[in-house]
Computed example of a mutant assay.
Amino acid sequence: MSEHDENEDEAFAEETLIQAIENQIEAAEPPAALATLNKLSLVGYERGEILHMMAMVLAHEVRAMLDADRPFDSAAYEQALRALPELPKETA
Rank of each mutant, 00 (worst) to 15 (best):
Q79A: 13
E26S: 11
A35L: 07
L40Y: 06
Q24L: 14
A92V: 10
P85N: 10
A13Q: 13
E49I: 04
I25H: 04
L66I: 09
Y77G: 03
A68N: 12
E90T: 06
H52M: 07
L87M: 15
Y45K: 00
Y45P: 01
E46K: 01
A55W: 06
R82W: 00
E86R: 01
E15G: 07
G44H: 06
D9R: 12
E15D: 07
E61R: 14
L51N: 01
P71I: 10
N23H: 03
E6I: 13
L66T: 04
D67S: 12
A33W: 00
E90I: 01
K89V: 11
H60W: 15
M1A: 06
F12K: 14
Q19K: 08
A35Q: 07
E78V: 04
T36R: 00
A64T: 15
N23R: 03
S41G: 11
A64Y: 06
P88I: 00
D73F: 10
V62K: 06
A83N: 14
E3T: 07
E14C: 02
L66Q: 09
R47G: 00
E61C: 05
P88E: 02
H4G: 14
M1W: 06
E61M: 02
D9C: 10
T36E: 02
L34G: 10
I50S: 02
D69W: 05
P71Y: 13
R82T: 02
L17N: 03
N7V: 11
I25G: 02
P85D: 08
D5C: 03
S41D: 15
E90A: 08
M54E: 08
D69R: 09
A59K: 11
S74C: 08
S2L: 15
A35H: 13
N23M: 12
N23T: 05
P88M: 02
V43L: 14
E14K: 06
R70P: 01
L34E: 11
K39I: 01
M54F: 00
A35N: 15
F12G: 05
V62H: 00
D69A: 10
L81K: 02
E10S: 13
D73L: 14
M65H: 04
A32T: 02
H4I: 11
E15P: 00
R63H: 07
A33D: 09
A92M: 13
E49P: 02
N38T: 13
P85A: 10
A68W: 08
